[in-house]
Design a protein around this nucleic acid. Structure first.
Length: 617
RNA sequence: GGACCGGUAGCUCAGUUGGAUAGAGCAGCUGCCUUCUAAGCAGCAGGUCAUUGGUUCGAAUCCAAUCCGGUUCACCA
């Protein structure tokens, strides 16, 4: 099989259970509504319910109110009519929580509650100038996130971008929710696929290098990997034409034999092979580094398979002693997972060498000893779901301390409108090319609009990168990671609607106002919240909860969706009400608070997605 | 064959610990720039939530079966 099925990306994250987090100074509105409702039911009917058992939704726009308690479940337990229960509960809630509720109405089984104006005004006053809004206090928990994890035989492609953006983002989300994060990467720098590039280089390169050909190193090496496969196919065809079966031809093709010999030489440490291997990997790393820098990937610790591929051997012995593993007559070592609904799995070949999963067992243990993380997240494609299920199970059976913390953040493949990307058909979308194209379209659109003609060249370059990469990252992160997604070049290049540039644009507009308006957010905000002002405040208040949900579910798309809706809400408000020329000083203060907190929240939200937001665009 | 994942508007996606008339964006159609950036806003149109049956006050959401698509089950990584 093609070597692109190697572990392409891996990342580990530790999930911290909710109750471990320090209490937020102020509970979210929804939490308060649940709490108050729980208390009211206890006082009125003597029924003890956890706040979490009470269903509270945002009130639908067509009804009056901010949040809604769904009564049906309670109706049944309390044997009351929805109307009677709603009236009693609404009255009680209002009476006991005058600072929280200012009114209620009842429609069928839904108790719609109006939150007091003062609550929202206090909320804005408290956070308007808070640059840390949404950022949680430290939890004391440590999480490892392993992501990116490339092979050194070819450049990064579109699939790697989803992995890199996800890994980086989940790391930032975990940081924002108070966890200490260690970002790691495992580089697959050895094996038959690397040898293929090396053989092709020896045969066809005439000693050229990235420097002499002015080629980015990873692309240079990738070209020889392709060259190998071309040559291999040619030789196989020739052998078949000479009467060999397909199987024989594939085995006997001279380039394949040479690659296999080279792998043996590498394992034996043959000096000239090692030198070539180091040189070519060096070229690749230089290329990767450039790409990583551009897309914003970085790592606290990089592991190399050439160092880790022998790990786990002692753990196999331990497993044999413990009786977790068993040995077959031919000497190979296995674990029987049929009782867990899985199959038997080989952990050591009959020749004594270890297999992929054995290395991973060893590496999990090494990471644990090195960093003592509470959780270890692997950002790896869903084609390896089975692998990680088995990995965790084996580690658990071995009783390794790292076992329970293993979490596979599995994501779906990125497909094109025409179907899957296939290197043989030349439909692989190269990461560098794609980034270049996005940036160049950002340039073109920006020039068309002509709003930043006074920018210096350096500022313009920065802006194009911000917008082009923002569009790309947002496009890949706005979808639930678990699901496969279709990358439509035309749609992804759109800068309108549910896109990164839409959110960035909203931010730039707000910043423009704040620059001119002297940011006067302290002061009397008056009374009489208008519907759009209230809607924006409600939206802003949800941010910390959204971040926490995204962390708990390892899902950056929650943040992307939130931040888009926030921008949309702001834009409606912006169109309808003037901020700088508000009807009164109080209104101006209030709207500046709203604007400032919105820009801050957009900035933080986009920040955890790895997207920067411009001051102007 | 076993296991797992998915099927929601023409397209790309939200919504799934069961709750109000299933939501966005794009594409299509109407309006809105002498006023804080129109990369924007307001509106129209667009649905058998794969199919069938079940559970119940209530199902896109839960259960069963079926159809379709994908991944995986290597002495590959």
């Amino acid at each position: 099989m093609d070597s692109c099925s190697l572990r392409i990306c891996v990342a580990k994250v530790v999930v911290i259970s909710y109750f471990c987090q320090p209490k937020m100074l102020i509970m979210s509105v929804v939490a308060q509504v649940k709490q108050a409702t729980s208390q009211a039911i206890k006082d009125l009917y003597g029924l003890d319910l956890f706040p979490s058992e009470i269903l509270v939704n945002a009130t639908k726009p067509e009804f009056e109110g901010d949040y809604t308690v769904v009564l049906f479940a309670l109706v049944k337990q309390l044997k009351l009519s929805p109307d009677a229960l709603g009236q009693q509960l609404g009255t009680e809630l209002l009476e006991k929580n005058p600072a929280l509720f200012s009114g209620f109405n009842l429609i069928k089984g839904f108790l719609n509650l109006v939150i007091t104006e003062k609550y929202w005004l206090d909320f804005l006053q408290r956070h308007a100038a808070d640059e840390q809004y949404g950022i949680a206090q430290p939890t004391g928990k440590k999480v490892m996130v392993e992501y990116s994890s490339p092979n050194t035989n070819k450049p990064l492609h579109l699939g790697h971008l989803r992995n890199n953006f996800l890994g980086r983002s989940i790391a930032e989300i975990l940081k924002a929710t108070g966890h200490e994060v260690v970002k790691t990467c495992i580089v697959n720098d050895r094996g038959i696929h690397i040898c293929k590039s090396m053989i092709a280089w020896q045969l066809f390169a005439n000693g050229t290098t990235p420097a002499t050909t002015h080629t980015k190193g990873d692309h240079f090496v990738g070209d020889y990997y392709v060259r190998f496969n071309d040559e291999y196919k040619k030789q196989v065809d020739a052998l078949k034409a000479a009467g060999k079966t397909t199987e024989e031809a594939e085995k006997e093709a001279p380039v394949m034999r040479a690659a296999q010999q080279m792998l043996l030489d590498w394992e034996a440490g043959k000096p000239e092979v090692m030198q070539l291997w180091r040189d070519m990997n060096g070229w690749v790393y230089e290329g990767f580094q450039a790409t990583y820098q551009r897309i914003g990937s970085d790592f606290n610790k990089t592991y190399y398979e050439s160092n880790t591929y022998l790990l786990g051997k002692d753990l196999v012995n331990m497993g044999l002693e413990k009786g977790v593993f068993y040995q077959k007559d031919d000497g190979s070592v296995w674990i029987d997972l049929t009782a867990d609904g899985l199959d038997e799995k080989l952990v050591r070949r009959k020749d004594g060498t270890s297999v992929y999963i054995t290395q991973d067992i060893g590496l999990a243990e090494q990471k644990q000893q090195e960093f003592h993380a509470d959780q270890s997240i692997y950002v790896v494609g869903d084609e390896q779901n089975y692998h990680f299920k088995v990995l965790k199970l084996i580690c658990q059976k071995l009783g390794l301390p790292s076992a329970d913390g293993i979490y596979h953040l599995s994501y779906g493949m990125v497909e094109l409108p025409t179907g899957k990307m296939k290197s043989r058909e030349g439909t692989v979308v190269d990461a560098d090319d794609l980034v270049d194209e996005m940036v160049s379209i950002a340039k073109q659109k920006t020039e068309e609009l002509g709003k930043v003609r006074d920018f210096t060249d350096m500022e313009l370059t920065g802006l194009y990168d911000t917008i082009g990469l923002g569009a790309l990252k947002f496009f890949l992160l706005r979808v639930d990671p678990k699901k496969k997604m279709v990358f439509n070049p035309e749609e992804s290049i759109d800068f309108h609607g549910f896109t990164g540039p839409f959110v960035q644009y909203t931010h730039a507009r707000i910043r423009s106002i704040l620059r001119k308006a002297e940011c006067d957010t302290i002061g009397d905000a008056g009374e009489g919240l208008l519907p759009l002002e209230r809607a924006l405040a409600i939206h802003l208040e949800m941010f910390p909860v959204v971040l926490r949900d995204a962390a708990d579910e390892h899902d950056p798309s929650k943040v992307a969706i939130y931040v888009f809706n926030l921008a949309k809400t702001f834009n409606s408000f912006y169109t309808e009400h003037s901020i700088a020329n508000a009807e009164s000083n109080e209104k101006k203060t209030l709207r500046l608070q709203l604007a400032r907190l919105t820009s801050q929240t957009i900035s933080t939200g986009m920040g955890v997605l790895g997207i920067t937001v411009p001051e102007r665009m």
